[in-house]
Design a protein around this nucleic acid. Structure first.
Lengths: 203, 203, 203, 203
DNA sequence: AATGAATGAGTATTCATTCAT
DNA sequence: GATGAATGAATACTCATTCAT
């Protein structure tokens, strides 16, 4: 038996999940509040019992989508592990989160621009802190001699994040792509590249 | 003096450019035919002189967005250059196209899912052929010994394309990111990775 | 300690006061049951504990608004005072009532037309009896020679009531208009007019 | 045969007339855009071809309602006629305007408070200038010795206007009240009052 | 005495689309 | 090549009302 409070919280999450699913599938403007209601088995107007406006629902879904990303990467950075291990954790966490709550993450990635300016800033802050943290991880690896000295940390961070996010798109469609394999391929690519190393310094 | 036909062609392109810009900025469902008209300085209903429906406009913009991608990569593949050179050409072409006609490419990337099923297939074919061509280029490089034997060609191709496309998003925002630098960084990352190579086979 | 019945009465009045205030401020259709609830610190649905429908609330507020008017003027008329005294009492009572329960009187004046036909008749009866009583007071004054013989009693009654009601509108806004001054000015106007009397019958 | 421009203007006026009628009958919030459309024989959404929002329609109707009042009274004041003549012109003009465009005047009187603050100020300015002009006319009459020295000009002006406006309410309902009679009664009331003058200063 | 969760009907507004001119 | 005037359908949002608890 649930307490009323617990039921309320639960229901609220259900509503946000439905909104996330619908926004992810049809896009913010392509989705109607009726679509959300239909997914919940309630009437159109009833969704307004849970959010003030469609826009607010979008904002909440976006926040649910970024939630945890910054915390995770900053925790990893704080532990200051060797580069390869650090990247493994970051990429595993990132792609793992996409797998775990794909809808809200996709909505964050693709639809956050429809959140009105003022409130969007808060959401974008997360994204920027994430990029920055990864950039710094790379810079530290360069300093320590784990990464090549000529790596452009900022741009590499952006490329890396771009790859992870792109995975969100084809994750479901590619049949033979389990999480581990995606992560492994991605890491190998980022760490060592695809080119066969030429033997160097051999007499 | 232009012939009416020539003038018509030009105007038609202007209309598609306007549609591309508006769809890129607000998304397909977030953009109205009135927005397109406003950008052209004509009235709402007048856009129907140029396209049968908003959906058709989207389709055309998407086709304009993919246009050339497949041709380019297949031409490169046909020339069968060494891996590093081939990738340079592919990435330069890809990112270059994004820079050159950003709006329509972005619309292709983000909005093509709103083209109705039947007509979407044709558009998606381009994407699939592109992926496939890159995959094969990589596979050939493996065979030839230019790339490591354990490279997952399919997934690496998808990651690479994902990175290029992600660049479309931050291209305008990042101040210090000229085309050459983006391409250079990306290529270096893909070919050699970020990790400092350990000396091998040295006695 | 109050009996439950007494507490109930009190609370019921509070609810009607809240409804009156909200209807007066925003108009019947511009006010929501939620506005009434907010003013009481309770939830939307809870107001239905006190009235069956918004319409019924309006009706009650209107009745509270007219309440006393007819009784007062008929009592004055029954006493049959001289014209100037009678008018003083009528006007003082009228404007005084507006000052004392402005909200419900304003709602009666402006919103009673939104009470459905059938139930509105009862409310309108009050208004008509009031007009009639004043008209008769004037007619008696004419008969008695207190008022000019050519006074149009019906219309003058309506004008007089119109003036009193109009005062309800600017009562709050005009800074230097205390009840006594309003009443005095109004009476002087109605009794003697503004024109300086020409000396008559002087040889 | 009308020019297209003329037809456009005409139609626009028809739409505003319809809005005025509907707002006057049911009140701003009680009237729906569908009601306006129905009165015009067009569909609900089509009214938005003529105004941006219901609120804007209200504003326009209010402006149409006050239009001319200030100009008229200021023209009269400029001519500086004797009091009784001046008042006759003012009252005739005022009540005449109410008779001529009753709907929009009533909407101005009763519904202008629903125009949002900022834009309401402009509308209220008209009302204030009107009051002020009448107040000054009375003050001049006092100075000239046409009106009693103890007349409270501000308040009398407000009472007078209140009476005229109140007439708008019962104009249609009272069967035996033609414009001339209303005006005559009102003027007599205001100038001379109802009380039979006592003979003064006669030896 | 009140609430939380809904409903269902309405309502302002937007918008793709049409078509006579 | 374009416009003005509409339409009709969708759609976000409001709100009076109900009712189990």
């Amino acid at each position: 038996m649930r307490t009323p409070a617990a039921r309320g919280k639960k229901r609220e999450e259900e509503i946000l999940d439905a909104a996330a699913a619908v926004f992810a599938e049809r896009g913010y403007h392509g989705a109607s509040t009726g679509d959300i209601a239909a997914r919940l088995g309630i009437r159109q107007g009833s969704v307004y019992y849970y959010f003030r406006s469609k826009e607010q629902a979008l904002e909440r879904v976006c926040l649910a989508g970024v939630q945890g990303f910054v915390e995770r990467i900053e925790a990893i950075a704080a532990a200051d592990p060797p580069l390869s291990e650090g990247l493994r954790e970051v990429v595993t966490g990132h792609v793992g989160a996409i797998v775990a709550r794909r809808d809200s993450v996709i909505v964050f990635l693709r639809e956050r621009r429809h959140v009105p300016r003022a409130r969007r800033r808060r959401i974008n802050t997360h994204a920027r802190r994430y990029e920055r943290a990864l950039e710094i991880m790379l810079a530290r690896a360069v300093t320590r001699g784990e990464a090549r000295a000529d790596v452009d940390c900022r741009m590499t961070a952006l490329h890396l994040i771009g790859m992870c996010n792109a995975a969100a798109v084809w994750l479901g469609r590619e049949p033979d792509a389990p999480l581990e394999r995606i992560v492994a391929t991605l890491l190998r690519l980022v760490l060592d590249g695809v080119a066969k190393p030429v033997k160097r310094k051999s007499p």
